[in-house]
Amino acid sequence: MVTKDEIMKIAILSKLSVGEDEIDKLTEDMGEIISFAYTINKAADIESDFDNINNLSNVLREDEVVPSMEREQILKNAKDSDDGCFMVKNIMK
């Protein structure tokens, strides 16, 4: 049901490095997870994907500005920052 290629593709998209020795195990696990999900599919009488647990809709906010957070706080957990900005490794090759 799940192929090794698909696992590799998902790994790349998720930015995970997966070793050769891990692929078989992961493929098997993922296959099991997906079959389990199919079981749920069969069991539940799903009317639409708009349902949520409390049948809530239109939880909306008024368009009123609230002061933003201090920049110092915003950047507090950043791994690196400079010039008031988050700093990441160069992404342009």
């Binding site: 909306l60 933003s68 010039d83 008031g84």
Partner: peptide
């Protein structure tokens, strides 16, 4: 509810929601 004003010093129109901190919940603007 952060302002959408154009410009401004970097990262001064931000809050935990719009910088994507875990545990925050988005609420749609009417």
């Amino acid at each position: 509810s952060c302002t959408t004003e154009f410009g401004g010093e970097p990262n001064t129109h931000c809050c935990p929601i719009c910088i994507g901190l875990p545990g925050t919940l988005p609420k749609l603007n009417k």
